[in-house]
Nucleic acid binder design. Structure first.
Lengths: 243, 243
DNA sequence: GAGTGGTCTAGACCACGGT
DNA sequence: CCGTGGTCTAGACCACTCC
């Protein structure tokens, strides 16, 4: 479906790496060779290679070439910070097929005005109006996470409790209200409050993982601030960086 | 110090955003204007803008322009997955100035052969020899984290306990053994073992944050697998993605 | 020194947003 | 429609790795 040259080339090369045409620790053909093979400029090849590098499949070394990296293994519910548009979309992660049933229970839905303290928590402006939503996430029958969310009302004027029950991102996409531009995330571990320990299936644990996400519209303003608190031992957050 | 055009331009623009020449939610001058201003091609401008976007400072929208994003606030010990070369280098993070004293205690240092089970844990090959190192990290007098590390011996033949006591990455850089190419990380929350709870200053908590990092050499092979277990409430892991 | 990737230029056409 | 960023080409020079 992608009709960009560089994107096509990226997919082809990725397939060849996955199917061991280029095994780990080997060097890919040079950029010059690849441009000949695909009949494009070196520049276009470089964009495809850069995408492979961002995926963590290869690493390029000046003067040597493009090296295929060894793969690693892990087996939990992955929530990669990227491509994570809300909890409901998690089910579409290919690794997460074993989540048979994910339900959402809205615990709280109200309008709040951002005061000094909330502004520190959410980075919203003082005086802004926001929807405050609490949603309990139930995986295969156990309460595995709670989302505490603030949505700026200005950007989502008609939000209802029914939308919150479904996927808010689905709602945004369907209604074409705006586009989501970017997200910043901060991940921490915190000791749990009494209320949280009542709501979540923590077993013996007295801590939760916290993923705080700030989401931007394509006009540059923050429109969502969500803290997801999740139980230990069941979730992984993955990342990749090259230097 | 950087003598690349695009990198210079990136720093200049970043400074202008920080000092509010271009406030949040405004649009930067167009790429054409910027290329005129700096007397470079549009291509070079685009690279600088891409770097700003990777930093999470701006977001570009086709047909509209480059939007400056609103900043957010947070105040913990940051360990960004990127630029994190071992714990000792954490002190060089500008936000982390308040860590006055960080010491390391080596709890264990031995050679191991990777068997089936260790191979699953580390993604190293079966039969490889590795150094296994346990290091306790003490911040301002309290035991805040433990690192459980495996280093492939093949890549680090002469590693001694003294090197482990200092910064292993310092050692690698100084000895110019190889370059570090990339890292994959997986972040989780786990309930704690008895031994860990004895070693760490957990207070009431019975869980730890776990950051598992796989580090690659520039030849494409995995050379380190480290699990850092850290106490709750004191650390943040930051991320940024654009769509 | 031969070959690799890293940077940069000059110019072209397309797709999208706003009017 | 015009102006924006997105993609692509053709060709150049430099810095690095390896032999």
């Amino acid at each position: 479906m992608p009709k960009n040259l560089y994107s096509d080339i990226y997919h082809i090369l990725k397939g060849e790496i996955d199917s061991n045409v280029y095994p780990p620790k080997t060097i890919l053909p040079g950029e010059e060779d690849l441009s000949e093979r695909f009949s494009v400029t070196r520049n276009t090849i470089r964009r495809a290679l850069k995408k492979l590098q961002e995926d963590g499949l290869v690493y390029t070394v000046k003067g040597r070439g493009v090296v295929v990296l060894e793969p690693i293994v892990d087996n939990r519910v992955m929530f990669s910070a990227s491509n994570h548009f809300g909890f409901l979309d998690l089910m579409s992660f290919p690794q997460n097929k074993f989540i048979k049933k994910l339900t959402t229970k809205v615990l709280n839905f109200e309008e709040v005005v951002i005061d000094d303290e909330l502004s520190k928590r959410t980075s919203f402006g003082i005086g802004d109006t926001a929807y405050y939503v609490e949603r309990l996430r139930i995986f295969n029958g156990s309460a595995m996470a709670i989302d505490f969310s603030y949505f700026r009302k200005e950007n989502l004027p008609g939000l209802s409790i029914d939308d919150a029950q479904g996927s808010i991102y689905q709602y945004i996409r369907d209604e074409k209200i705006f586009k989501i531009a970017a997200a910043r995330s901060v991940s921490t571990v915190e000791t749990v409050s009494d209320r949280e320990s009542e709501l979540l299936d923590l077993k013996e644990a007295n801590c939760v993982g916290v993923l705080k996400r700030y989401v931007y519209t394509d006009l540059g303003n923050l429109f969502e601030c969500t803290e997801t608190k999740y139980v230990p031992n069941h979730f992984s957050l993955v990342g990749f960086e090259s230097y």
